[in-house]
Simulated scan of single mutants.
Amino acid sequence: MKILIRAIVSFFVFIVDVAYGKRSYARFYLLETIARVPYFSFLSVLHLYETIGFWRKADWLKVHFAETWNELHHLLIMESLGGNRYWGDRFVAQHVAIAYYWVVVPIYMLSPQYAYYLMELIENHAYHTYDDYLKTHEEELKAQPAPQIAIDYYRDGDLYMFEEVQTQPSGEFRRPNVDNLYDIFLNIRDDECEHVKTMEMLQKPEARQTFKSPHSILESRHSALALKPANLDEMV
């Protein structure tokens, strides 16, 4: 099954690369429109399971919603750069997204692990796409200002949702620079890496019992630290 998934993703990547060529912003717009869709599928199925009393995973819902919020802001950034300028690009992206939603829903219901593996491959491709773009256009991007929507998301707005996509933070959440367009694409690339790590974690057999959102992890750590002095006093 994983071989088939890899083949499908490789074919999709080939088609996109051929169709869009050097039209980078239009390609990014397409990718970000589609990238949100599996998280919608995950949320739909999780809400269904909760409604029928199958199982409830608040942290899974929270993280997947944060991931849709993250991808939404990637999409808004690409729109601010003109990636959705042409009707044809919007038509293709939106219709592929609708079809993709109904492909992912049954896969997720039958096997969450395979659905997460599919998304891991997609997000990994996105990471390398942005990484290559940064290496090729570094000077050009550094000379351009950061879009306001990106500044609001990464620095000046409510950062809770941004923090929720930062997998297992080691004490502090990421606070990236937003000084120019290069910084923004660097942040988007790093976001994709966080998505990959989350998808990898959710494929583990023990994920249903152990997976926690970044804020839940920090809250647990803080609670444990708060208990230590009390325990020491009790020992004395």
Rank of each mutant, 00 (worst) to 15 (best):
R85G: 05
Y20Q: 01
Y153T: 05
K197H: 09
E163N: 14
I8K: 14
Y182E: 01
W69A: 14
Y133L: 13
L110R: 11
W55N: 11
H128R: 12
K2F: 07
N70K: 02
D179V: 00
M119V: 11
F91Q: 07
L43Y: 06
T51Y: 15
I122N: 05
L202C: 12
G83I: 02
V178F: 01
S44C: 08
T68F: 05
R85I: 07
K212P: 00
S10T: 07
L159Y: 06
S220N: 11
R85P: 00
F185G: 02
I34H: 01
N187V: 06
P112G: 03
Y154A: 03
Y127P: 00
L186E: 10
R27C: 08
A97S: 14
F40C: 05
E67W: 05
L48Y: 14
M235H: 12
L227N: 08
M235R: 15
S80Q: 06
L4N: 13
E67A: 14
E164Y: 09
V9I: 15
Y86Q: 11
V18N: 00
V178W: 01
D59R: 04
L186D: 12
K142E: 06
S10H: 05
K57P: 00
R6K: 15
A97P: 04
Y114S: 07
Q203I: 04
R36G: 15
E192M: 10
R174Q: 10
L186G: 07
L134R: 03
Y117N: 04
L46P: 00
V63C: 09
T129S: 14
E139Q: 13
V16R: 05
N231A: 13
L186C: 03
D191K: 07
F12N: 09
D158A: 11
